[in-house]
């Protein structure tokens, strides 16, 4: 007997919202990407809790794919950050305002 399943979901929800707040409110591109990582990690926690709740391995299988997506996303995202830093000389999201009217 560990805890009710709702508490696992609550932990995953709090972590997901922390990541969402980090992705929305921080201005550095690196911190935005870190927020996305926190959100994917919270999704993994929810999936593993569901896998234990229903005694089925499908949730754990999905965490494998979440990890693959997270690794790909961070590789391409960091390459994009390096590219845009080379283009504009800044990693601050507020400095990309060329189209500002």
């Amino acid at each position: 007997m560990i805890v009710p399943y709702g508490q696992v979901i609550l932990l995953a929800g709090i972590l997901f919202l922390m990541g969402a707040v980090c992705a929305v409110a921080r201005r550095s591109l690196i911190m935005i990407l870190i927020g996305v990582e926190i959100m994917l990690n919270a999704a993994g926690i929810a999936l593993i809790g569901a896998s234990l709740y229903w005694q089925a391995l499908d949730g754990q299988a999905f965490v494998i794919f979440v990890m693959a997506v997270a690794a790909t996303e961070v590789a391409v995202g960091l390459a994009l950050i390096v590219y845009s830093q080379r283009r504009s000389g800044s990693v601050n999201a507020d400095s990309y305002n060329i189209m500002k009217g």
Binding site: M1, V3, P4, G6, V8, L10, S51, Q60
Partner: peptide
């Protein structure tokens, strides 16, 4: 989650 009563039972330990 607190309205939903089906989530109240505790998780049993298992290991895959």
């Amino acid at each position: 989650m607190f309205v939903n009563a089906g989530m109240g039972s505790k998780l049993v330990t298992a290991m895959a």
